[in-house]
């Protein structure tokens, strides 16, 4: 039996999903990246290795997320795809007639509009990360409540307070103000959920035609308060998939499976890489005034890849199958 592995290396979390040939999820994992993407990938692989069914071998590996290129070098990926395509693939496999996908992650939020199973439009948050998971995390810890209880507490609210959602700095001062006035915690949290949703719909979802069925995924989908705020704002039911946290990874696994169908074999380097020592090095190339910050990754003194140079001098200087920055499939 063959299994397909999808790895989504995001800014805040690294998610891994393992599925079988029938595209059923066998194992999934949501890890904090903690600024060490390679370490997180290795940890994740180690976890999967111990839980993989005995008769299963890895038939394909796909990576996605902002660290997809780095991860693809480490694991030997068959497909490297951006997170928008990956999320869309996973959602439309799950609910074929899906028309809207809302995704809120650690620092990214996106909206994907699908029509007839095809992406028709998408948008991502711009320079500002207001109203993403990191902000909720931060507020939860400021109020001294575990993030897991955030949603359930918000649900108890009867009259959510109005909180400015445009900017998380304003939102925070507004929240403190409302606290000092004596509003209770559930109302403040529910107000925050509504502010976040309002901000998302105004910024990311600006001008988009949001039609049902609507799916909500990404780490923040764990928060039932946000789900309810979306349902209230959109006046429609919002579906949260079972594996909402790893949908990007699932999409990557599906895409990898398709890529391997074409090439016939996987590039996966095996679970042994979990023990391998990878080191990265960055240096400023001083050969021209561009001063590119070149990144180099190596395993046991062997340079695997270099990238981030504008002229290609460093990235082309080592023989390898593919240049980082180009899609593998």
């Amino acid at each position: 039996m063959r299994g397909y592995l999808g790895i989504d290396v995001g800014s805040v979390s690294t998610n891994i999903a393992l599925m079988d040939e029938q595209e059923q999820v066998i194992e999934n994992l949501y890890l904090r990246t903690q600024g060490q993407p390679i370490r997180a990938v290795q940890k994740g692989l180690d976890y999967i290795r111990n839980r993989i069914p005995a008769d299963m071998e890895i038939g394909a590996v796909g990576t996605t997320g902002s660290g997809r290129h780095l991860a693809s070098i480490v694991v030997g990926a068959d497909s490297v795809k951006n997170e928008i395509t990956s999320h869309a693939v996973a959602s439309s496999k799950l609910v074929p007639d899906i028309q809207t996908v809302l995704e809120i992650g650690g620092q990214d939020s996106k909206i994907i509009i699908l029509r007839n199973g095809v992406v028709a439009d998408f948008a991502m948050n711009t320079v500002c990360a207001a109203g993403t998971g990191s902000f909720l995390d931060q507020q939860a810890s400021r109020l001294n409540i575990p993030i897991e209880e955030f949603g359930p507490i918000a649900l108890k609210s009867t009259t959510p307070v109005r909180i400015a959602g445009r900017c998380s700095v304003f939102a925070e001062s507004d929240m403190i103000h409302k606290q000092q006035m004596g509003h209770n915690l559930p109302d403040i949290l529910a107000g925050l959920c509504e502010a976040l949703v309002r901000n998302y719909l105004n910024n990311v979802g600006k001008g988009k035609e949001i039609l049902g069925p609507v799916m909500f995924q990404g780490g923040v989908a764990a928060n039932v308060g946000i789900k309810r705020a979306f349902e209230k704002a959109l006046a429609t039911e919002v579906i949260i998939p079972e594996h909402y946290g790893v949908m990007g990874a699932l999409g990557a696994a599906i895409l990898a499976g398709e890529a391997v169908k074409k090439t016939g074999q996987t590039n996966f380097k095996g679970f042994g890489i979990a023990e391998e020592e990878f080191s990265t090095l960055s240096f400023e190339c001083g050969d021209c005034p561009n001063l590119c910050e070149v990144i180099e990754i190596s395993a046991q003194d062997k340079v695997l890849a270099r990238w981030n140079d504008k002229c290609g001098k460093w990235s082309n200087s080592i023989l390898k199958k593919q240049k980082v920055g180009e899609e593998a499939c």
Binding site: S66, K81, N82, E83, I84, T85, V118, V119, A120, F122, M124, G325, E327
Partner: peptide, 10 residues
């Protein structure tokens, strides 16, 4: 790059 790739994919 993410946005461009996704756009071309789309």
């Amino acid at each position: 790059i993410t946005r461009l790739e996704a756009f071309v994919d789309m």
